[in-house]
Amino acid sequence: MIIYKPLDLENLSQFKQIKKLIDADLSEPYSIYVYRYFLNRWPELAYLAFDQDGNEPEIPIGCVVCKSESHRGRRMRGYIGMLAVESGYRGQGIAKTLVTKSIEKMAKDGCDEIMLETEVENQIALNLYENMGFIRMKRMFRYYLNEGDAYKLILPLTEKSCIRTTFLQDFTFDPNLIIN
């Protein structure tokens, strides 16, 4: 059975495995500090999938890495940065569950919207996210350089997501509101 838990930063092998899972998939290389940026600041938004019945139940076989922070001081934006599932475990809905859990957490934390970028040609990722309600807000020319264009996908969680930032109140003036 697959179980899901947020990252335990004290567990170095989890950190290393996340890096291994994601580096394997990427054409764009990430340094250690990309992982430190996301995982050390937002460990609670990194979900890991473990196969309890597998050979190494302590080693994650899938992960999703996210962050959430204020967008131009006007709304809270959650961001899905990376997602990877070991090839032997694909096709079982693990990625979908990982993403769902991270969105649930970010929604609970007060995010007004969730955003991510993905390649125009990545039909699998597009299907995954669009079946959750994400819509394409923008197309970016050669975002991935030679890999081609990208779509910016957004899932609106609250009304604030639907108002232009120029017309939203700047909540950095209100000390009662949470700012990252």
Partner: peptide, 21 residues
């Protein structure tokens, strides 16, 4: 989409965001 994260109204408003003002 089959989940409760968002509503059709929010999706419409987001899509029409450039025109909302």
């Amino acid at each position: 989409a089959k989940n409760n994260f968002t509503t059709n109204e929010l999706l419409y408003n987001l899509r029409m965001k450039p025109f909302c003002s």
